[in-house]
Design a protein around this nucleic acid. Structure first.
Lengths: 208, 208
DNA sequence: GTGTGTGAAGTGGTTCACAGCG
DNA sequence: CGCTGTGAACCACTTCACACAC
């Protein structure tokens, strides 16, 4: 079955919302309510949720606990992914300390940096290697996912060298450049400066 | 004229690419080439660029310098935006240090945090205030854009209090929650954990 | 000949509207 | 009667295909 990117994005958000509702002890929720809380149309919510089989009760709504478990199963990983984080600057450290990165779906197995003060030390409990050795370490640790928090100028080079190891299946790129990778490597990009530029553009546009 | 969000996103990327080409001294570029470098279809590039008038030369391509200036003008701001950054943790500091944030389109006028060690001090040259005073300071400094790099639990509250000042026109939210704001406030969200979850989902999905 | 500009066709995602079940 | 599930209608963005300018 094919499943669209915007749908997955919303599923993750439903999941997060349901976690909250579970914690608050709410038993039942309607597509209407969920839509209001996340700013989606109720029909959108229903379509998304019905995608994986009938899970709601007509005339009632969705059982919070059941729905939460249901989506957990959809989003669940078959195993823990091995992740490598490249670039332990402020952004890299921010990610390491992030709530959502204390997750049982993956394990950050190695850090990489160019800074000799960092190489060989542990940061937040994870050993930092030299980016020069990235091909070898990625292969050795069988790292499948790469998080790139390096300056734009370094990103393509680093990606190439890591992909060379042959184990990398996906890259989450925070560097403000468009990477090219082999087509069997999934690429997701978070471009912070583009988001800000977009916001400013639409603000300007609205004023005109 | 109405202009679609994906188009703006690409415009920002063309602009960045052209900056590079200008620096490298390339004189002319085709939609084909630009498409390859950014992983867009050539026809997409042409459609985007023709949106604002004929700018290319048939049989030749686009004059790099001219096109760069052209897009600059499209993306240009009417004036410098006043920005406030809320939450001077690792992520907030990362943004402050960011290349793209040394930009002539805006000026970060104030920082906000709850940490009494930070309040009253300057960080990267900008004074940090208590979030308790956010309504007053935002009004006083006429802050129009807010960057939220606070924990999820605090985001809605902070946003409400800031919006109360009456000057806020847009919010760039990095907190992993869905905010509700008055409809005259533009909202852009960068949800890092959602991006990672999405990537992992599609990796899993591909393997099945 | 070469590469742009663009109407027309295609694709993919969202919203509607209502049947159907609890 | 209320709220879900879902085909059909709608809408938005992308891609094609070709006329046209250089």
């Amino acid at each position: 079955m094919k499943i669209a990117e915007p749908t997955v994005e919303r599923l993750v958000q439903y999941h997060r919302l349901l976690e909250q509702l579970v914690a608050e002890g709410q038993k039942v929720v309607s597509s209407q309510e969920m839509g209001e809380m996340l700013s989606f149309k109720a029909s959108q919510v229903r379509k998304d949720l019905s995608y994986f089989g009938e899970i709601g009760k007509r005339g009632v709504g969705y059982h919070v606990d059941r729905l939460h478990k249901h989506i957990s199963r959809i989003l669940a990983s078959p195993r823990k992914w091995s992740i490598g984080l490249v670039g332990v600057g402020k952004l890299g450290e921010a990610l390491l300390g992030y709530q959502a990165f204390q997750n049982d779906k993956f394990h950050i197995r190695a850090l990489f940096d160019v800074d000799t003060d960092k190489i060989g030390t542990e940061i937040q409990g994870i050993l930092c290697y030299s980016v020069d050795d990235i091909t070898e370490i990625v292969r050795e640790k069988e790292i499948e996912v790469l998080i790139l928090t390096v300056p734009g100028g370094a990103a393509q080079h680093v990606a190439d060298r890591a992909v060379q190891a042959g184990t990398v299946k996906g890259i989450l790129n925070f560097a403000p450049v468009s990477l090219s990778v082999p087509e069997n490597v999934l690429l997701a990009a978070v471009d912070i400066s583009v988001e800000l530029e977009k916001l400013l553009f639409f603000l300007k546009h609205k004023e005109e």
